[in-house]
Nucleic acid binder design. Sequence first.
DNA 1: CAGATAACCTGCGTGC
DNA 2: TGCACGCAGGTTATCT
Length: 277
Amino acid sequence: MPELPEVESLRRMLLRSVAGRTIVAARIGRLPLRRRAIPNFGARVRGKTIEGIDRRAKYLIIRLDSGDALVAHLGMSGSLTCRDVDFDSSEFDPKHDHIEFQLDNQSRLVFNDPRRFGIFRMVPRRELDDLRELKGLGPEPFSPEFNAEYLAGQARERRVAIKNLLMDQKIVAGVGNIYASEILFRARVRPTRRAGRVKPDEIARIARFTRIVLHDAIDGRGTTFRNYRDSEGRPGTFADRLQVYGREGEPCYRCRTPIRNVVVGQRASFFCPRCQK
DNA sequence: CAGATAACCTGCGTGC
DNA sequence: TGCACGCAGGTTATCT
């Protein structure tokens, strides 16, 4: 479900709600797929204080004062919510609630993930850079390394569809299926074009709109398509600003031509056949 | 090695 | 109402 803007919005909200709080107790339900139980998990987090929360690509990194870091990825269906004991009495549901932290302010931080594609790990902070999940990630879209020249270099000689290149986390970290379509619409490039054949000025537009679209989405606290909710239970507002995603058959906002939906790299990809070359 | 495909899970909306 | 089917915002293992 979440791409970079949703995870960044989550980070900012958790920073306000749980940063500085101390973990009183923790419990584990069924773990995310392919994950072994973390040894001595309860004992390792009990009494520890949440020092800060970082984001890398679509990963959330919760720093504890013990020197450990909790690394979370929401996969397709995960959420990390702060439930207030006084106002939200919903019980821990081991079917989809995988981890719960009871905090020292009467609230509970819950990692919930029905499809269990997400991950939740705990590693000493100094080992973060060696984590397999984080190791091969490309530059953050807002970093200076991610620019037109860099993207052109990565696209060179590549035969993959430009949309797949944009969603490749080794190329740039954080772009997923919704925003890839939105970025390419604004850059006026068809998702199916071979990356190596996309012209330099088009590549430059893609790099620029990658930053613009993700930034605007963070501004709107992410996209609510279906039933995504942020950690305070509110929907994001960027869904109102989607130009093509989910709009198959509806008129392009720019030229009124019906938006098309084609499968690229086994993912739905929306584009305007007239505006995007 | 680049690229394509299958697989990992569960829930929800749709149409009969 | 029930059921089969298709689809879902991600990543990774395994083929060609």
